[in-house]
Amino acid sequence: MKKPKILIFGDKRREKVFETIQSFERFVKGKAKVLANCYQGDCLNNLLQEADYAFVFGGDGTILSAARDLSENNVPVIGINVGKLGFLAEFSLNQVKKHFKRLTTDKSLIEKRMVLKCTITRNKKEKIVSTAINEVVITAGPKFNMIDLKMMVQGQSLADCIGDGIIISTPTGSTAYNLSAGGPILSARLSAIVITPLCPHTLSFRPIVIDAEKKIAIYPQRLNEGTTIILDGEILCSLQIDDVITIEKHNGSFLVVNNPFQTQWDTLAGKLNWAQKPKYRISERAKK
Rank of each mutant, 00 (worst) to 15 (best):
L85K: 08
V256G: 00
R222Q: 13
S204Y: 05
C38G: 15
C199I: 03
Q22L: 12
G233Q: 11
T246R: 12
F55V: 14
P207I: 04
L268R: 05
E50R: 09
N45R: 10
L116V: 11
G10I: 05
I138D: 11
F144Q: 02
N45G: 06
N273M: 03
A181L: 01
K112P: 01
K2E: 15
G10K: 01
N46S: 11
L158A: 13
E135Q: 08
E135V: 06
A132N: 03
Q95P: 00
E50G: 02
G59K: 03
L179W: 02
L190I: 04
L88R: 05
P4S: 08
T139P: 00
T105V: 01
I230Y: 03
G30S: 04
E111C: 10
K277L: 09
V115N: 02
D211A: 12
A212H: 06
C237H: 12
T119K: 15
A217Q: 13
V115H: 02
Q221V: 11
L272R: 04
A188G: 01
G61H: 06
C237N: 14
A67Q: 07
D106W: 00
G58H: 01
T104N: 02
D160Y: 10
K107W: 00
T62Y: 03
L109N: 09
R14L: 14
E213T: 15
V77C: 05
F144T: 06
Q264F: 14
F9S: 09
T227K: 00
T263M: 08
F27D: 02
P171I: 08
Q221D: 07
I218N: 08
Y53V: 06
E19F: 13
F87N: 08
C237M: 07
A36R: 10
A89P: 11
R122V: 10
D242R: 09
I168W: 04
G61M: 10
A212K: 07
I210F: 13
F87H: 05
T20C: 14
P76I: 10
V244Q: 15
E225L: 09
S23H: 12
